[in-house]
Design a protein around this nucleic acid. Structure first.
Length: 104
DNA sequence: CCGTTGACGGCGA
DNA sequence: ATCGCCGCCAACG
């Protein structure tokens, strides 16, 4: 987990009530263009992890489908709504309003 | 060693 | 705005 440590560390910085995109996390972690590796790193997480994985969404503000099954997608949406983040008619979050700005 | 796969994203048609 | 193709790179068989 040597190289992904930067990724997990960056995800931990996302404040509650905010979300960040895979590409954004990659950039903040010093790995621009490696959005896919961020997704791969998230898939490797265990349930006891202190990483707020649910705050990571795709570039359109939506929840990406995963091989683990649709159940986790539901859980992610529930966790985000519990933090006050609303989903639009197309199941997407308004990144302009709820996207994480690292400089804040 | 090589081909496939995958929690993605950008660009062109 | 939507769709499809391609690039990125680590993990697996």
């Amino acid at each position: 987990m040597s190289r992904y440590g930067r990724i997990y560390d960056t995800v931990r910085k996302i404040p509650a009530g905010r979300v960040a995109t895979y590409g954004q996390i990659a950039m903040e972690a010093g790995l621009p263009g490696h959005a896919r590796q961020v997704g791969y790193a998230m898939a490797a997480l265990t349930e006891g992890s202190d990483v707020p994985w649910h705050r990571v969404v795709n570039a359109r503000g939506g929840i990406s489908a995963r091989s683990a099954g649709p159940a986790f997608e539901q859980i992610q949406r529930l966790l985000l709504e519990a933090e006050g983040i609303p989903f639009g008619p197309e199941d997407h979050i308004d990144l302009e309003r709820y996207g994480w700005d690292p400089s804040e």
